[in-house]
């Protein structure tokens, strides 16, 4: 676990009482403080869409040019390895789930046989309901969220009357509509939680409080750090969710660290060590066949989507 990599988590405790030494803050009601905090966070990312259109990696590079040069070199490394584009997500704590969901559907759209892939995905998702019920979630709690998710994927095959077929553009619009986007995120959170709860022995050794680093019971961990809106995902959640969805996912860690690496024998025939800038991909393999893995980019505290394209495909290309 990399507790230090997680974004700060709102902790109500330091905000109360007079110890804070900030009379103005301490007199605010918790809801007011929460709003204030939320507003500050919204300000920090002005008008960032929930999921942005594709942008060239150079946009991200420009943000690091005056900072840590290892980051810059890692971004260049990604570019050299074909990852020339990035689709950024809002840093609201839901970014892993939102990125994964978007990439999951986009991959179906772009697959060789989108209809088959869509049908398989819908059937997979619908089959997960049993697991949610088995761990005690009530159908009425999750069915609306699931329906929102599957309706979106079904638009690839046969949209409801009056609704257009799903295109890349339509997918981006859907993910920027909070009701649709957040419903999908919520379903993925519940699915992650169910996967951990139904197989607690597999996850228990890895369930730690992200700040206090103390072990937690599966139920407590899930309620606090999986089901709760805005709580970022770490390795455990990613493992559980990708297993539940049967999806392969590669996460590129942009961490600003140099790695010592032995130069491979195929290279120059010598096994000597050197410091090298590269980007590690952590692979979550779940035996999925036929589709490319989902590729995400992790920077401490945040996930975006990696892409080998640097701009949105235009409509003509989509029709072709």
């Amino acid at each position: 676990m990399k507790a230090g990599d997680l974004p700060p988590i709102d902790d109500p405790e330091p905000l109360t009482g007079g110890e804070l030494g900030n009379a103005e803050l301490s007199t605010l009601a918790p809801s007011a403080l929460f709003d204030l905090n939320q507003a500050a966070m919204d300000d920090a990312v002005p008008d960032r869409p929930l999921i942005a259109p594709l942008a060239p990696m150079s946009v991200l590079r420009a943000e690091y040019e005056n900072g840590n040069q290892v980051f810059v070199q890692q971004i260049d490394w990604l570019g050299e390895h074909g990852y020339i584009g990035i689709r950024r997500t809002r840093g609201d704590g839901d970014c892993f789930y939102r990125s994964l969901a978007f990439a999951y559907i986009e991959r179906i759209l772009n697959s060789a046989d989108p209809i088959l892939a869509a049908v398989q995905a819908v059937s997979r998702l619908e089959s997960t309901q049993e697991m949610l019920e088995a761990v005690g979630f009530q159908r009425l709690v999750f069915e609306d969220f699931l329906e929102m998710f599957t309706t979106l994927i079904k638009r690839i095959v046969e949209p409801e009357p009056g609704v257009p077929m799903l295109t890349a553009k339509g997918l981006l619009e859907a993910f920027n509509a909070p009701e649709v986007s957040n419903s999908v995120v919520v379903y993925l959170r519940l699915l992650t939680s169910a996967q951990i709860r139904i197989d607690p022995d597999a996850y228990a050794p890895f369930l730690f409080h992200p700040e206090l680093a103390i072990p937690m019971e599966p139920r407590e961990f899930c309620e606090n750090f999986v089901e709760a809106v805005g709580k970022e995902a770490d390795h455990v959640q990613i493992t559980a969710l990708t297993r539940a969805l049967c999806v392969n996912i590669f996460v590129a860690y942009l961490d600003g660290r140099l790695r010592t690496r032995s130069v491979s024998n195929n290279d120059k025939g010598k096994g000597k060590e050197r410091e090298a800038v590269e980007v590690e991909f952590v692979e979550f393999q779940n035996g999925e066949e036929g589709l490319d893995p989902v590729r995400l980019l992790y920077r401490p505290g945040h996930y975006d989507i990696l892409d080998s394209r640097c701009e949105e495909p235009d409509v003509d290309m989509e029709m072709a």
């Binding site: 988590i9 709690v141 969220f145 919520v186 959170r189 519940l190 309620e223 089901e227 809106v229 805005g230």
Partner: peptide
């Protein structure tokens, strides 16, 4: 107003 985690930073749609 009340100070209850599930109404602030631990909210879940469940």
């Amino acid at each position: 107003e009340l100070c209850l985690d599930i109404l602030q930073n631990r909210w879940s749609p469940t």
